[in-house]
């Protein structure tokens, strides 16, 4: 078969190419540029090759931040996904209370991230914060600025508060799309509540849950604002997650080369983990799991 070559098509792709170039490719290339050079200011650059990458790979600092990051993302996924599904299952399916719940749950999602951080920063303070004060009065020794565990609990609870509703809303959308006939069929089959969940609701929600998991993973893995506002990465380095560490390195210490190498590896890790998630879940989906 003869194909007609039409070069005009390039003009149609051009706007997108330009947009992507300025929004993603050029900034990314700047980072690549930094990552293979050393600078002492004055716009003087020296070729460094892969030195920064090697240095970062052998640096405990990045590995520790990565471990903390994986722990953080793991914990919040383990809490938010089941909790979100649980909330969605128990939401009213229609009527006034359904809309009420939807509005109520979108509220945390509408609050700017640094405001969320500020809210929790104040909320948890022992002197003026409601939570901190009550815990203190109950005789519980709680102080997120000094105790590592308290700091972790605070940022995790904050993230759960902020983002569980996203999972719940997505899961709710998935649940709503299940025709009533499925539930009737299950009733007729005498299926238990658990079986209805396992064999009807879960498989039917898989598509949106996949999106929820991906979104929550990527967002939590890049989280910066909220924990930074609450703990500033402390106490010590206890809550210094990847992006906080990166900002410290790039803007605090002005180590542009290592920071650039760090960001590129950071980016690749996110890409890799997201790809793994996606592949696993698409396969599950195909099997109708």
């Amino acid at each position: 078969m003869n194909k007609t070559v039409n070069q005009k098509a390039w003009f149609l792709v051009l706007p997108v190419l330009i947009l992507v170039a300025f929004s993603a490719v050029i900034p990314l290339m700047t980072v690549v540029n930094y990552s293979v050079q050393d600078t002492f200011g004055n716009n003087q650059f020296f070729w460094a090759g892969l030195e920064w990458f090697e240095e970062m790979l052998h640096d405990d600092r990045m590995w520790n931040a990565l471990k903390r990051q994986l722990l953080f993302s793991g914990i919040i996924l383990a809490i938010e996904i089941p909790l979100g599904i649980f909330v969605a299952l128990n939401m009213p399916k229609s009527g006034f209370w359904s809309s009420f719940c939807l509005v109520l749950m979108s509220l945390p999602l509408l609050i700017p991230w640094n405001v969320v951080g500020t809210i929790w920063q104040i909320f948890g303070r022992v002197d003026i914060g409601l939570l901190g004060y009550v815990l203190d009065k109950l005789g519980i020794d709680y102080n997120y600025t000094q105790d590592t565990l308290d700091a972790w609990i605070t940022i995790i609870v904050m993230d759960v508060w902020h983002w569980t509703s996203l999972v719940a809303l997505l899961a709710f959308a998935g649940l709503k799309s299940i025709p009533d006939a499925y539930y009737q069929a299950a009733k007729i089959d005498q299926a238990s509540r658990w079986k209805v969940f396992r064999y009807i609701e879960l498989p039917k929600m898989m598509g949106v849950l996949m999106i929820a998991i991906l979104l929550r993973f990527m967002d939590s893995f890049m989280i910066y604002t909220e924990p930074f506002v609450v703990t500033g990465g402390g106490p010590g380095n206890a809550t210094t997650l990847l992006s906080i560490d990166l900002v410290k390195m790039a803007l605090g210490q002005f180590d542009l080369g290592p920071a650039a190498a760090f960001s590129l590896m950071y980016f690749l890790v996110i890409l890799l983990i997201s790809w793994v998630f996606y592949t696993v879940m698409v396969n599950l989906d195909k099997k109708g799991m």
């Binding site: 025709p179 006939a181 499925y182 009737q184 069929a185 007729i188 396992r198 064999y199 009807i200 879960l202 498989p203 039917k204 099997k287 109708g288 799991m289």
Partner: peptide, 14 residues
């Protein structure tokens, strides 16, 4: 009782 619907109702994961 058994029932069959207009939509094809089967358990998707089985």
């Amino acid at each position: 009782v058994a029932m069959v619907y207009q939509q094809f109702i089967n358990y998707p994961s089985m």
